[in-house]
Design a binder for these strands. Structure first.
Lengths: 205, 205
DNA sequence: GTCTATAAGATGATAGAC
DNA sequence: GTCTATCATCTTATAGAC
C-alpha cells in the first residue's frame, strides 16, 4: 500500500524517510545534534534543506524518532533479561553483552544518546529520556543488589557507585569502538566482563 | 606592576581576565563550546558581548587558554609519577588518584576536554590536544606494561583495551561527580581503584 | 573597561512553483 | 518529492564613542 499522507507515520518503513533518518543519525552522532544543521543533513542526502520539511516537522522530530525507536528496542531486551530465571552474575553478564551489541548494531543512536540526551532531556518533548534513564538505573541496581544478596558479588560494594562504574564503562566505549575494525564487540565484551568481575591485578601478585 | 597592553599576556593573573575565563569555562563545561555563545558569556559576566573582545581575540582564544593551562598542570603531575621510584601498582594508583583530583579541582576544564577536545582537535590551533592525548596514552600504557612485566598485573591483559578501560572509567566520572556533594573524590578514587584492581566478584563466590 | 551600533554570515523554517 | 526564494533570528566579530 503506497503512502498517501504527506508525512509518513512514525513506524513507517518508507524507504526515503528511513534513509534520511540514517543520514541524520550519522551526522548527529559525529558532530552532535546542535552542531548539525539541517543544511548538513540535506547536503549529505543530496537534496536542499527546504525539501527535508516535506518529510519531517523539524530537526527535533528527526532526533526524537531516532532515539525513541532505539530505546524501545533496547529496553525490550533488558526486560527480557530481568524476567529470565538465570542467576545474578549471568544476568549482569548478559546485560553488559546486550549493551555492547547495541554499540555494534546501533552505533549512531548510542552515540547520540551519550552526547545529547542530557541537553535534549531538558525539553518536555524529550521527557521520556529521563524516564528511560531511571529505568536503566533500576535494571542495573536490581541486578547488583541481587548479586550481593546471593553472594556472587562482594558484600562491601557501594551499589550506586558500582552502577555508575558499569554504566559508564560500558557505554563510553561508543567513543572509540568502530564496528568492523579491530576487536569484535563480542571480544570486547568478554574482556570488559572479565576486568569488571575479577579486576586487573594478578591474584596474590 | 599594572597591565599596560590592551590584552594581558597568557599567564597573567589579571583579576578581570581570570574571572571572565572562569565564567566562560563554567558555560563551556555545561553547554559545550559551540553551544555557548559569546552573548551567554557576556551575560553571565554582567557585560555586553562586544566588551569581551577587549580581553580576548575570539571565543576560540578563551577555550584555548583554559585547556592549555590545565593540561600543563596535569601532565606535570603525570611526569612526576613516572619519574618516581615506586612500583607499577603504586604508580597506577597514583595516576588514578591524580585524575580524580583533577575532576575535583578543575571540573570545568576536565568536562570541556571530555566533551569538546575531539572537535577542537581538528583545527591546527588545537593540535596540541592530540599530542597531549598521545602522551597520556603513553603514560598509561607504560604503567600497565610495567605492571604486567613485574607480575603485579595479570599477564593475559590486552594492554590497549585495558588502557581504554582505565582512561574512560576515570574521566567519565566528570559527568556525574559534583565537588562538595556526596562522596569525596578520595572516597570515589578508593573504590574505583579497588574495583579496577580486584573486580566486583566475590572471590570464590 | 564598557557601551552603542552594526556588519556579514549562518540557521531553522515557510510558501508556492514544478 | 524536490526546488526556488526568502524570512526572521541568532552568531561572531568590529569600529569608535564615552
Amino acid at each position: 500500500m503506497p503512502e498517501t499522507s504527506t508525512q509518513a507515520p512514525k513506524g513507517s518503513t518508507s524507504g526515503r524517510r528511513a534513509e534520511l533518518l540514517r543520514v541524520a543519525a550519522g551526522l548527529f552522532a559525529e558532530k552532535g545534534f546542535r552542531n548539525t544543521t539541517v543544511r548538513d543533513i540535506a547536503d549529505a542526502a543530496g537534496i536542499l534543506s527546504g525539501s527535508l520539511y516535506h518529510h519531517f516537522d523539524s530537526k527535533e522530530s528527526m532526533v526524537d524518532e531516532i532515539l525513541s525507536t532505539f530505546q524501545e528496542q533496547l529496553f525490550a531486551q533488558y526486560d527480557e533479561i530481568l524476567a529470565s530465571g538465570e542467576d545474578a552474575r549471568a544476568k549482569l553478564e548478559r546485560a553488559v553483552r546486550v549493551s555492547f551489541e547495541a554499540i555494534e548494531n546501533h552505533h549512531d543512536e548510542v552515540a547520540i544518546y551519550q552526547n545529547d540526551a542530557d541537553h535534549l532531556g531538558t525539553f518536555p518533548r524529550f521527557a521520556y529520556l529521563a524516564d528511560r534513564n531511571a529505568q536503566s538505573r533500576q535494571v542495573w541496581v536490581t541486578l547488583i543488589e541481587e548479586g550481593v544478596r546471593t553472594g556472587v558479588l562482594r558484600a562491601d560494594l557501594d551499589v550506586t557507585l558500582t552502577y555508575r562504574f558499569i554504566r559508564d564503562t560500558v557505554w563510553v566505549a561508543v567513543r572509540w569502538y568502530q564496528p568492523g575494525r579491530g576487536l569484535t564487540h563480542t571480544d570486547i565484551a568478554d574482556q570488559y566482563v572479565r576486568i569488571l568481575l575479577d579486576g586487573i591485578a594478578k591474584p596474590g601478585g
